[in-house]
Amino acid sequence: MIEIKDIYKSFDDKQVLKGITSTFKEGSCNLIIGASGSGKTTLIKCMVGLHEVDSGEILYNDRDFANLDFHERIPIRKEIGMLFQGSALFDSLTVQENVMFSLNMFTEMPNSEKLDRVNFCLSRVNLENVNKKFPAELSGGMKKRVGIARAIAMQPKYLYCDEPNSGLDPKTSIVIDNLIKEITEEYNITTIVNTHDMNSVMEIGDNILFLHKGEKWWEGSSKDIRHTHNKELNDFVFASKFFKEAMESNNL
């Protein structure tokens, strides 16, 4: 479980996050949605320590990450997996070396065991026979899958995904979404996904956090979102006419 309390963050004199508080539970997919520039990426980056918050608490099972130093954070960092928007695979390493990276760096496992773990993770994301390939030789969807495999290699308790669907076709998007959902439930991970894809919201969102101009504007489940009277949220969710009509015709 991750709790965030009253997170503030500004860049220079621009206030980007204005007191965000929320709780993210194990085994659930928590989605952060909001318009471009609303602070989604900033929030995630604060939570994993890529940005330092100005004030507030970030509790990973009651350990306050925000107020720890580099060394004290390492045990928590090892429990965090992250899928980046552009996959961020190490491009001088093969797929196998990418997935094995943190095992090599942080564990004393024998080679065969590491290899087993890598193969397990790759098969979990339905990739086979790509071990020796380099990231440049993979398609966008495959890179995302390798990214997921790398993120779960250390059996994380917390999984972050920044825009997992960006740049993917609708079908591949759904595959990736489902993969994230399955992995979350299978391993009881606390997952936080940052997206503007409304399909994902409806498909995999257990808990949804809507950010508007750096504030938590609305929070609830994907069922509630259809009946909300919150104007900004409605504008965001039903920005696509097609989506709105589809929802209405299905009488959801």
Partner: peptide, 18 residues
């Protein structure tokens, strides 16, 4: 520089690598 702009350095940091 490429590792920076493609978030590979962020990926290292998140893993806890210096």
């Amino acid at each position: 520089g490429t590792m920076r702009v493609t978030e590979q350095i962020d990926a290292l940091e998140v893993m806890g690598v210096n």
